[in-house]
Design a protein around this nucleic acid. Structure first.
Lengths: 393, 393
DNA sequence: TATTGGCACTCGACGCGTTCGAGTGCTAAT
DNA sequence: ATTAGCACTCGAACGCGTCGAGTGCCAATA
């Protein structure tokens, strides 16, 4: 594709994104002060259409980008605007003010993103499978009930109520707890199985029948920790989009979005793929992001992992009802072992540059905020930085 | 209003709810096999309109109910269908299967309700201000961090991470914890203030400066317990409603719904008003509900408080953007001191009878489920029944 | 050879008038 | 008090002509 075609395609995408109307050769020449006549442009547009980058809704209409057109735009002609100071200001406060738990931090990041982009934002709670278990305490609440408190490697705390045999007393419970801790401490959550944990039974000197129920409950508590939650915000923004003037479309889409587990699963797939792609090294994304990074010479230089993003356009999204949307995600990292996904769903006809900048920016702010609020200022590699938080289910 | 007018109004509401089209005299006579001619009906309709129960979109169109018409319908001519067994089946499983926390129980009840009604369901998490604090434990996680575990009267457990001065050791923390418990045990959450709690400081024999931070954090933890969460489900269903064929309306509405705190606040107001009305005894609702109750001779007879409901129609709803909707809520109770709200938002043109039945049914199932899963089978008054659960913020 | 002006053609949007039908209100007869 | 009958109203649906922004193609041009 020669330079002029690129220019034209970019112009068409930009116009179409703005107006939501098929763009014609004449108006294109006018608006962009192109130094060719509309006839030439028409010629080029016909070729671009033949190549699959453009589509016509009907014979005598202007052109609009196809999925492939958007893809080319995003891959090759994207410019990422910097976040203006007034846009950027306030996010720190927004994220950190009266903050209680890690969970809420993510929730707020999603909320902020939705507000700034006017699209639907989606975030996944952190994935802890790579974290290791540092402490586990089981404490009696009253006969028959206890609470399990888990401390993970980065200082994250989770807990969960469990039922235990009523005849177990505080001392016994304590010894079971210590046995479990000896047996599991330092292990990665992923590697903990029912088999691993039941090897603690022998150490207690208590009747197996008693111990086993507690062990099982403790096991469940540990596994609950790995459950991933999904947060969404800004669903209502999309109704303003002209593509949803057609209510049936909106309907289809919102039904799809309502399948939160599907969406979450898909985001994890995207992450997977992004990581694979990065591993292969063929990652043009990095270049783009470099630009953003250098825009603000930030305190985040400690973070080794570069933020990067992934874009899925239209049919590329393997979720029913999302054919007319685009889905942009990125991975946030808190310390070394904790990470999750955050992203935006909007119409295909999206301001890709602006949105990607926003996502990268929020992502960065999120990581900074996590470090700032929960971290130790003197330990910068992240893995020993503290991160407070709990979730439970 | 004479009997015939009532009959006609009811017929009009029923027809309009079904078809969403203004209903005319002729079709009304046909569909309901009325023994008067259309001219007579026309006469009556004109009068009903004059009385404010009906409206015409334009001169030569049929009539549709006004807010006042719906109100009369709901107040005087409502019939509450029984829940059919196949509709009812599965709710127990749905609510209880793999249930972890109280919070999730409410969430599921809302989900179920949304699914069955095809409208938007809303639920508030339980309000604990009336509960009293039974136990409070503060336990060290690591230097500088601890976890506060609160056990409320009905056996509900909440917890929260706090920061403490790093020099406090496990023993000291323990003694602070016990002092706080001595000082607060048995008090209603509502009655606990910073003043009450700081009276514990003297008992510990530790430097005030050290103790005070812990006390403050414990106080915050207690207050967090009273925060009310809101759950919604089924937003997407409403898009199917013909009233939302107009996207701008949908837009306005969804923006309103997005103000979750507003909605939650409004639900609490409604509850307030309902309680006042019940106290006055002038409660026609009870009669209606009696019918539903007797429909299923249920295990819930232990519950002394009768379920009842509250309906707000159109303009009656004091929330911007909800003028075309109706809002039905009811109060669920778990034991004596714990209660919250659950309800449905749908178009004014709503199957009131069916929806109210559904809400009452779900409410009952919710209370049963709470009793069954968390309660002691042998203590039925609820207040001593156990209720497991935690939330944290 | 790449570019351009010119021209015929296409098609949706818009405005306008007509028809159709389901509704109304009013009146006179039962 | 009820009803049949009649004139009237108004939105929905339809057909039709016009307008304009778009197209493709072709012959002329730099």
């Amino acid at each position: 594709m020669d330079e002029r075609k690129k220019q034209i395609l970019k112009a068409i995408v930009d116009d179409y994104v703005e107006t939501a109307e098929p763009v014609g050769s004449k108006s294109l020449v006018d608006r962009h002060k192109l130094k060719y006549s509309s006839a030439t442009i028409r010629h080029e547009m016909a070729e671009l259409e033949e190549m699959g980058y453009l589509e016509k809704p009907h014979t005598s209409a202007g052109r609009m980008p196809s999925d492939r057109g958007y893809r080319a735009y995003v891959d090759n002609m994207l410019s990422l605007p910097e976040i203006s100071p007034q846009e950027a200001s306030g996010i720190r406060d927004f994220l950190l003010k009266n903050l209680d738990e890690a969970r809420e931090l993510i929730e707020r990041a999603a909320e902020y993103l939705a507000g700034k982009t006017n699209y639907l934002s989606v975030a996944l709670s952190p994935q802890y499978s790579d974290s290791s278990l540092e402490q586990i305490k089981i404490m009696m609440i009253e006969p028959g009930r206890a609470i399990v408190v888990l401390v993970l490697s980065a200082g994250v705390v989770h807990d969960r109520l469990i039922r235990i045999p009523a005849m177990i007393d505080e001392k016994q419970l304590d010894s079971i707890g210590r046995a479990v801790e000896r047996c599991l401490a330092g292990k990665k959550l992923d590697d903990i199985t029912l088999v691993t944990i039941s090897s603690a039974a022998g150490e207690t000197g208590l009747p197996e029948a008693l111990v086993n129920q507690v062990l099982y409950e403790a096991y469940v508590a540990i596994k609950q920790t790995e459950k991933i939650e999904i947060f969404m915000d800004g669903r209502h923004h999309l109704l303003k989009q002209p593509e949803f003037r057609n209510v049936d479309r909106a309907n289809r889409f919102y039904r799809a979005v309502h399948q939160e587990q599907m969406v979450a699963g898909y985001m994890m797939e995207m992450r997977q793929e992004q990581e694979e792609r990065q591993a292969e090294g063929c990652d043009w994304n990095l270049d783009c992001l470099e630009a953003v990074e250098s825009g603000e010479e930030s305190a985040l230089s400690v973070q080794r992992t570069k933020p990067s993003y992934m874009v899925r356009i239209g049919q590329e999204i393997a979720l029913d009802g999302m054919e007319d949307m685009s889905f942009i995600t990125t991975t946030y990292r808190i310390g070394r072992q904790i990470s999750g996904q955050i992203g935006v769903i909007g119409p295909k006809r999206m301001q890709y540059g602006r949105i990607i900048s926003q996502i990268s920016f929020v992502n960065k702010a999120l990581m900074e905020a996590a470090g700032e609020h929960y971290g130790h200022p003197d330990s910068n590699d992240g893995s020993s930085g503290q991160k407070e938080g709990k979730t439970e289910e």
